[in-house]
Design a protein around this nucleic acid. Structure first.
Lengths: 190, 190
DNA sequence: AGTTTTTACTTGACACTGTCAGGCTGGGTT
DNA sequence: AACCCAGCCTGACAGTGTCAAGTAAAAACT
């Protein structure tokens, strides 16, 4: 796959760096010199350092939204498991994105309607699934709580897997997909 | 409460900053000048910038461990709910600590036996509870999966609450303790 | 076709950051 | 009296994000 321009080059390098070393140590100057351009070149494509994280998050929420959308193409009784699996696998396959998406100091959702729209679109799939699963008769509070529970389980499992402490505590995980499924089973959510 | 020395002053200010603005923008120089000392004074108490985060994490895991330990003083059938509640409430009451504790780029567990010991002590409570709950007869895999599920649910709920997207998506949460409990109920884990 | 505008950079400067090196000073130990 | 050392300070360095101003070529417009 050919890299089209400097913008893409910087973005990819940034994602790679975040996946390997986290966001804090990311230096746009270093990215620029690595790409063979002047230290100011990246700032023509991104307003500032935060603009890079914003772009990463935008891309991330788009891809996560697609993954989740694909998960609800399964029969209704298998959707919960598929959603959980899709969420965790997205996180593990896109660590660089995932680390940025939920850091409000890196990408400020509140004052960024576009970013919020992309994030909302991703999670609407989850909420819609819960609504369909519990049925129209169920209370709004049950739907809220159930959606929060599913999201929390997925997000927590993803975060703890990426950031390390899970395997350190629970022991090495041989078959990740099978493990995700047994976690899902142990919670009553699937 | 009287602040004993410069070390405590810096530590408190650092935690406050992280809680409000995140870890990335933390400047030891700024903390030093705010405390009325030279820019190098803090480095007498901490090896380097990371040393500050290490101290924060150490303190955090200690307190989290205490909270979780207190939660398992309840009758066995109420422990799961109490643990979940304690975990989330610790996170919300100690955002500055929580944000640091699970960032492997800020505090490197792998090469830091002491930090790892503190973290392990905290989570042993959780694993021990699951072992007691499921009984000796249950398989090691079930215990692992169940502990991971509980930890993930708690961690995810805490993270999403702190970082913001939960309430943005689910709507404002009036009574947080009640909400935590209904999330716990929706999952089959309590 | 000739003129203007825009794109995609470059160079230079500034304040700020973590960190290394080398001081100083006062209380405690030997 | 000599020494040590904890707890600070001053100074310097490279690296960082970002503002300001330039340049050269492509694109757009008249």
């Amino acid at each position: 796959m050919v890299v089209s321009g400097l913008r893409d080059t910087i973005l990819r390098a940034a994602v790679d760096h975040v996946a390997e070393h986290g966001p804090d140590t990311l230096s746009l100057r270093r990215l620029a010199t690595d790409a063979g351009v002047s230290h100011q070149a990246p700032y023509h494509h991104f307003a500032d350092r935060q603009g890079v994280f914003r772009a990463i998050a935008l891309d991330g929420f788009t891809r996560l939204g697609q993954s989740l959308h694909q998960a609800v193409s399964a029969p209704i009784d298998q959707q919960a498991g598929a959603l959980l699996e899709a969420y965790v696998e997205f996180a593990l396959a896109n660590v660089g994105h995932f680390r940025v998406m939920f850091r409000r100091d890196l990408c400020d959702m509140e004052n960024d309607p576009e970013l919020r729209t992309f994030a909302d679109a991703a999670f609407d799939t989850l909420v819609e699934h819960v609504r369909a699963r519990l049925g129209e008769a169920s209370s709004i509070n049950d739907i809220r709580a159930r959606a929060a529970a599913m999201w929390s389980l997925a997000h927590g499992l993803a975060t703890l897997s990426i950031e390390g402490p899970l395997e350190e505590k629970i022991g090495p995980i041989a078959n990740r997909r099978a493990f995700i499924r047994s976690v899902a089973t142990q919670s009553g959510l699937v």
